[in-house]
Design a protein around this nucleic acid. Structure first.
Lengths: 221, 221
DNA sequence: GATACCAGTTTGGGATACCAATATGGTGCA
DNA sequence: TGCACCATATTGGTATCCCAAACTGGTATC
């Protein structure tokens, strides 16, 4: 793999894994030395990550995007639009057997599955569900939205009850989709997204002080 | 303005204005000499335009994205989802007076308005309408979708009847939005988008030979 | 003690040099 | 004539330099 894609992947992983805190300053030269690449691929990586919303410009320099509560709320509205559209498309397909693959994905998580895996599968559920629609744009929209939500969602993963509820809702959505009941699937997905947003925003608002103590910038709604 | 943003703007304008044909090969060094910039800003511009879908990688090199009929159809589905979601949000606002600004925008076009202006206003109608929702993500989604449609829409602008029909539909949508009638506005917008897509795809499928003769790559649905 | 100011350092933006991979075009052989 | 092959030019990827702007820290002044 080229150096460029490598820097991009590793830097994204560090940001999404909170190894670099939200709000932290980045210098091209630090990244350069950290990953042993030169500035050209570093700058390419930063430009890409900027379009993903993971880093942003702070005057002349670069900053890891803070966690933004207002943004999280807007993303929930956006997700409702694109995920429901994708789900309705999927429900209208003649062959909906692919939902079973997603069901199997959910099943792969049990009590001794590491947190990281729950986190990843929780996002992949939505991403892969959108992919089934066959619409590339809806798929990308969902994938990008989940990427932006990713860091904030680490919180939800720490809440056993929330996680269990999410999995139940995921299964109900799949069940409706398997039957081709678009309205019911859409309703369940809408409830899931709104509920998920509420829990997330509430948790974050509560934990805000703690997050700031860890050096994470959190912007209020 | 920095060199970088300059190259990006000018190159985007040339691509969207069909001064560089869809499917044409691009070399970083040609762009470099064409705009009097060095490769650093050129590469930044290409990376940005890649995320907008205006250029793509062709093996090791760069290509102006061909006009893709399958993509146009998928974008129409995507637009339906995001534009309708935005419109419904706008309809639920207490103060919907901003729709009058958009109405005024439409009025600014008359018989002796140049084609370019009709083209621009036709896209801005959808973009600005989405902006009214106040949701940044829905707004960006619509703006990006319209950017991808932009080149194909030059065709529609040549059809006087289609243009007139579009303007009528635009006005009807605004009227419903002004009344806060979300269902009617959404229905009208859906009809508009689907109709627009049908006319576009039909025109392109018919003109395909002519476009290819002009050196434009057109990928079938 | 606060502040205006200045030298030195850091940093991102841009330009250029170098390289490996690829494309190109011509040449000679079958 | 057609085709395989090689020398050469071109190109994107990377590394490195240079520069102007911004930042930093200390100092002299009021």
């Amino acid at each position: 793999m080229s150096q460029m894609q490598n820097v991009e992947k590793q830097l994204r992983q560090m940001i999404l894994g909170l190894e670099i805190g939200p709000g932290e300053k980045l210098t091209e030269r630090w990244i350069e030395s950290r990953f042993g690449a030169s500035r050209t691929p570093v700058r390419a990586a930063l430009l890409r990550l900027e379009t993903e919303g993971l880093v942003g410009r702070d005057g002349r320099g670069w900053t890891v995007s803070p966690i933004n509560l207002a943004e999280l709320e807007q993303i929930a509205v956006y997700r409702e639009a694109v995920e429901i559209a994708a789900l309705r498309l999927t429900c209208s397909l003649a062959d909906r057997s692919a939902v079973d693959v997603i069901e199997a994905m959910l099943e792969s998580c049990d009590n001794d599955t590491p947190r990281e895996e729950w986190h990843r599968v929780g996002m992949d559920f939505h991403i892969e569900l959108a992919r089934l629609s066959g619409n590339e744009f809806l798929f990308r929209a969902v994938r990008d939205a989940m990427t932006r939500l990713s860091r904030a969602r680490w919180l939800e993963v720490r809440d056993e009850a929330a996680l269990s509820r999410a999995w139940t809702e995921h299964r109900a959505i799949l069940a409706a989709a398997r039957l081709g009941d678009a309205d019911e699937a859409a309703r369940l997905l809408s409830v899931h997204i709104v509920g998920s947003r509420d829990r997330l925003v509430t948790s974050l608002a509560n934990d805000r002080r703690g997050l700031r103590a860890r050096g994470f910038a959190v912007v209020a709604a």
